[in-house]
Nucleic acid binder design. Sequence first.
DNA 1: ACCTGAACACCGTTCAAGT
DNA 2: ACCTGAACACCGTTCAAGT
Lengths: 213, 213
Amino acid sequence: MAPTLKRRTGRPTTSVLSLEGIAEAALRLIDAVGFESMTMKSLASELGVAPSALYNHVPSKAALWLLVQEMLMGEVDVSVFQRLPLPSAMAAWARSYRDVFAAHPGVITGIAVLPVADSPRTLGVYEALASALCAAGLPDARIVSVIVAFESFIFGSALDVTAPENIFDSGEDAGEHPVFARAVAARAALPADPADDAFEQGLAALLALLPAR
Amino acid sequence: MAPTLKRRTGRPTTSVLSLEGIAEAALRLIDAVGFESMTMKSLASELGVAPSALYNHVPSKAALWLLVQEMLMGEVDVSVFQRLPLPSAMAAWARSYRDVFAAHPGVITGIAVLPVADSPRTLGVYEALASALCAAGLPDARIVSVIVAFESFIFGSALDVTAPENIFDSGEDAGEHPVFARAVAARAALPADPADDAFEQGLAALLALLPAR
DNA sequence: ACCTGAACACCGTTCAAGT
DNA sequence: ACCTGAACACCGTTCAAGT
């Protein structure tokens, strides 16, 4: 009559939890409820486990977050640098990078709270970028600056997505800001997605930093 | 013998706390310990008051944060648009904006967690920008895109400051990333501050988005 | 009107106890 | 080796009680 429901198979199964499974569930949860609401308790219940069980695999929430970051870095397409000429490759990489954030909006908040650290994958991306820029003739001393400028713009664009879209839609006091109100209205007439337009404009301008070929 | 130390003056003083005083103390605390560690308790003890007393002046920590944001927006110099031609004015504004974040590094974290909302001062900045761009001949439909592109770059640059500077200094496995390692080393030889160099490069490139005069 | 102190629900994390 | 449940210090916020 003892409750012997658990461990139904005779063979001792390996641990229910795995680093990969935890990181994937964490990302799923961040996507669903945002970074701030992804709690060790909610993550544990998602995995059908007690919160304290997580600490057998991950030393802290911060370490877990680094795992998620590393996972996301793998989604950024760096193969373009081996297939395309520099300006196109740089543009493709930037779009891929931003698309990762667009697909996981909650993540950018986490990056601000716990900055991206030097991980194998992050350094791999930097090496691919530096190699392409160097091969194109950019002086060594300027390579990091160009990388940082691009990355700043990409991060900022991702952060911008977080901001409320209706920053001026409630035109109650539009009379106080007539020019800006007119610009906001005119923006809706753009052929492409307005949000993408700002990114594409900035990206095109930044491409001028690359050495002319 | 009763402890009658408090209320030393006969005249009934007005409240010890004020909205301004609270916001200023909050910013001071954010600067000192970072956004995440600025707690209602620490803020209260800084002001010599019980935590619950703060709720007589501010409905929530989120509302308090908006107050701080609004305060900071006042430090951004928008007068340049009335004194300088467009490209110089835009550059001066961007530098001023970034300098505010540089002076208060903890703030950028808060902006990611609680995005900047439409406040009187924020809209005032947008109106000044839109007016200058419009007067320079930029089509209405592109004004917001250009503003967003600049702001994304500025926010991203501020976010970059948050990241650890030593992202490659510990050159243990520099052999795996030789080109990037060389670029990092060469960067130190730059005449200006390396961190500023990336910002200035990106800013110069973005200025190409302004209409040619 | 404004402050205090106790209380509440919720965090991340630790640890003895079980299997 | 890995999970549970209780516990700890800490959050933001509420509220009755005082002045």
